[in-house]
Design a protein around this nucleic acid. Structure first.
Lengths: 183, 183
DNA sequence: CCACTAACGCAAAATATTCGCGTTAGTGGG
DNA sequence: CCCACTAACGCGAATATTTTGCGTTAGTGG
């Protein structure tokens, strides 16, 4: 994430070790035990390195969360825009409904940097890929803004402001408002 | 916020003093200077009181933010559901677009308690009031869920994930999807 | 191979957090 | 009104964390 002036060798190793340490501790230990000194010990570096490089635990967590939210590839191709969106949303919601998933989003929002914008960009990009594939197939144009505003945003709102699980019928209904069911 | 077992006298005074101290410091000082000891000094109490009662700075800030977001009264009555919503949204967005406004929402989301749910409840309640007034006037029923999902959620998404100002034409367009413009 | 310097390690100093214990002051019963 | 009870607070010691100065290490570019 950090556009380091010196991205090579040691810096990269330290960053990888720290990220791995955060992911490990985030899995094993309670959140209240997730402290900078603990992460530093696990990563084999001194705390001051983390303070200097990330500034605070919040910003470090946001950095790690952004990396975990970065898509590893394009959304699955199901043969139709509607199918692609449905598949992609289902996976996204499943990942983000879990307690650690919700925590990740909050970590992103709790930082001082550009993590939130980056995250939103990831989501939008995935939708754009789906839209582009649909266009190539000759399907009617997908309104990406509408998907963000009328589907992604309500889902995110639920995830952030409510602890209840997200009803599949509900978000499929949202999707149907933007993209008519295939077939 | 705290459903104290003993809400009277001293406890209430301490809470009021602490909330006031947070609001003051939040206005005067930079956010990085907003620390528990600083708040305690300003409020005239010892830090340990804050730690015992609120647990952490995050939870204290969330508590204060919830109080600031609690509506002070019903939305203005403009004579129509559409007008009420427009007026209410305009005020809400204006308040929340500012840097401290956005910070408030993030404070709410960064806590461990029920602040987010409480906040969402506030918003929903306001919309319900508008809906009830409309019903009493004989207007067509307002779908409160639709307002939350298709208007409030997208606005919140923008506020949280983007730093750009919110375009009035855009959110009025969202509103028009749910409530046709008043004739 | 060398000069340059970003990034790191280390340790001391400054701050923040936790905890035990005594005290204060709401609360409820007589 | 008075008293017993105890939640909530104050204080200070003990811990834990964050910050900072300075020497060292190791990428980077010539």
């Amino acid at each position: 994430m950090k556009e380091s002036l010196r991205p090579g060798g040691r810096s990269a190793r330290v960053q990888a070790a720290v990220h791995a340490a955060v992911r490990d501790l985030l899995r094993d230990r309670a959140r209240s035990e997730l402290t900078i000194p603990a992460i530093a010990t696990r990563a084999g570096v001194t705390p001051s390195t983390l303070y200097r490089r990330w500034g605070s635990l919040q910003d470090l967590l946001a950095d790690v969360a952004v990396e975990r939210m970065r898509p590893e590839g394009d959304p699955d191709d199901t043969g139709s825009v509607r199918g692609d969106l449905e598949e992609w949303l289902e996976q996204y919601i499943e990942e983000m409904t879990s307690v650690p998933g919700r925590a990740m989003t909050r970590d992103v929002l709790g930082c001082t940097g550009a993590a939130p914008r980056q995250c939103a960009a990831f989501l939008r990009r995935q939708i754009e890929v789906i839209a582009a594939r649909g266009a190539a197939r000759g399907e009617p144009a997908l309104d990406v803004d509408a998907v963000v505003d009328l589907v992604v945003a309500p889902v995110m709102y639920r995830l952030l402001f409510d602890t209840a699980p997200v009803d599949p019928a509900w978000w499929r209904g949202l999707l149907a408002r933007v993209v008519p069911p295939a077939g």
